[in-house]
Design a protein around this nucleic acid. Structure first.
Lengths: 161, 161
DNA sequence: CAGATAATGACACTCCTTTTCATTTACACC
DNA sequence: GGTGTAAATGAAAAGGAGTGTCATTATCTG
């Protein structure tokens, strides 16, 4: 079962995609006039590599491994900047709504494993037909949507039997 | 624009549907061994009649009109019980995730007006085809989903013209 | 290398929510 | 209808998450 304190689940080793993401996030920060500090690099690296949505405290604990002097305030401020730049986004789950994950690209939607907490994006079919029919029936001018799916990821299904 | 303190928007006069809901919620509470107090009736009445998701404090302020001695603690406990019974559910919005609304029935999904805050349910087309295709592609065993649409409701569109 | 200023971490503070506890109230039973 | 028991209430206090303040440190520019 998913254990919030088991960082093995929270922080996978960095793969090529994550490295690209890491570099591009650093560029984004720099292009927006933000400085690249050791602390910030560490936090960005963790977030870019994470396969799970992270809370501020989880990120704080992970960050302190590399920067023992890290303060929780810095974590909040870093999350704030990354969200402002559209690089990460908040993830809402039944258990809590203050977790952060790399932002969706285009029409991606979120798949969350209820057992291990893993978060994945999938490229959603276009839902605009559906949305238009809703708009017609309701009188709403639909401008945005959130779609999240919950279930068991491949690994957790395998473990179960 | 939507003003949190303007209760006219938050608490419409009770219509027939709301009365039915109110009565059935009271029965649910009673059937589960909970007692029907004056305070509880008032809070249930407000929630059943509300066209907007309400925060604890909003419910508190509305409740105090009928029960001036009402405490905020009671509001939290009442929300807890109603949620436990599946009568209300939390609504997650960009601005906050601690608002409550009557629970969705069956395959209903949520429509939220970003201008006035009005919340409506619509009977969603069955998304199971879509979900199956996601399951096939991702390896996830999809068990549940959240779908929320954001936009402008009819009234707010008219006002904006 | 030096100056300007962004970023940091410690501390204090606010806001939302939960816990504790004495009092009040609803319901079941007689 | 009274009466007893246990749930429900409200006040006060405690807990936790997130935000401001400020002196110090670090980054980037020139």
């Amino acid at each position: 079962m998913y254990n919030e304190n088991d960082f093995h689940y929270l922080y996978a080793t960095m793969n090529t995609n994550a490295t690209d993401l890491y570099q591009s996030w650093l560029s984004s920060l720099q292009n927006s006039g933000y400085r690249l500090t050791e602390t910030r690099r560490a936090l960005v690296e963790i977030l870019a590599a994470s396969s799970h949505a992270l809370s501020a405290v989880e990120l704080y604990d992970l960050g302190r491994r590399e920067c023992p002097r890290l303060g929780l305030v810095t974590v909040y401020r870093t999350l704030e900047k990354l969200e402002e730049l559209g690089l990460i986004q908040r993830v809402h789950q039944p258990g809590g709504c203050h977790m952060y994950l790399r932002a969706a690209q285009g029409h991606q939607h979120l798949l969350l494993c209820t057992a291990c907490g893993r978060a994945e994006y999938f490229d959603g079919d276009d839902l605009s037909t559906f949305m238009n029919s809703v708009a017609d029936q309701s009188g709403f001018d639909v401008r945005d949507h959130w779609l999240q799916l919950f279930g068991l990821c491949q690994q957790c299904r395998d473990h179960d039997l």
